[in-house]
Simulated assay, not measured.
Amino acid sequence: MLELDHISLSYATDHGRNTVLRDLNLSLDSGEIACLLGASGCGKTSVLRAIAGFEPLDAGTIRLDGCLLSDQKCCMAPEFRRVGMMFQDYALFPHLNIADNVGFGLRRQSSHERRQRIHDMLALVGMSGLDKRYPHELSGGQQQRVALARALAPAPALLLLDEPFSNLDVDARERLAFELRDLLKAAGSTALVVTHNQAEAFAVADRIGILQQGHLIQWATPYDTYHHPVSPEISAFVRREALLAQRTQACLRGAPAACAAA
């Protein structure tokens, strides 16, 4: 469904150009959920921006379902890519109610089709009956669900999610990560998620990509990422994050010794 072939991307700075992605390759099958995992500044969001059409490539190609989206010479406009994006801050329109937020990308449909699609998407994310409320009347988790419903409503071929749990408290993140996976699978969506949190990546993804300084170091299933890391650095990164997650959970459960160790 998605093919990134040797893509490179850089941004202009006062001192020339800063390369943020270097010769990156990955592919994603239809219906798969993948996650890009790495520290802040490693290039994760830049991958999403390139796929969405917000940034032109320096080299390489991006194809979606066999259609060329970007290369060195052309960059298809975002609105023609059949790519949906759920932003880190959800970007819900505060002056629109929930139904109008979800239906924002459906203006070419008839009023009946639009109402039915809004109804179906709100039912999918467990928000039926809240269509007349406004974003400020919802919790963070409910806003996340509405943002997901809005991104899914136009039936994109590919859904991109940029740090979808960053605005939620620690206790809610892991639970909602599993819920997000279930919702995406129920919708039959092909999705690429960006996060710096390993627990979220392992909860959501069929395939995990680890980025370091613009390079894709490993692209594998969660099992292989954990049990068969390609380098000692990735092994240390994965197991250190897993240990921190265990200690955080122990802290939340009120275990003083683990809290002190964390």
Rank of each mutant, 00 (worst) to 15 (best):
G84D: 02
M86S: 10
Q88M: 05
Q88A: 05
D89V: 06
D89L: 02
D89H: 05
Y90D: 15
A91T: 12
A91L: 11
L92F: 09
F93K: 03
P94V: 08
H95Y: 14
I98K: 00
A99E: 01
N101T: 08
G105S: 11
L106R: 02
L106D: 00
R107K: 15
R107N: 12
Q109R: 11
S110C: 07
H112C: 07
E113S: 11
R114D: 13
R114N: 07
R115N: 01
Q116F: 11
R117L: 04
M121H: 07
L124V: 03
L124F: 14
L124R: 03
L124Q: 00
G126S: 06
S128D: 13
G129D: 02
R133G: 13
R133Q: 10
P135A: 14
P135Y: 00
S139V: 10
G140V: 11
G141A: 07
G141C: 07
Q144F: 02
R145P: 06
V146I: 15
A147K: 01
L148K: 00
A149S: 12
R150K: 02
A151G: 12
L152Q: 07
P154G: 13
P154H: 02
A155R: 10
P156I: 03
D162T: 10
D162R: 04
P164D: 06
S166L: 02
D171N: 13
A172K: 04
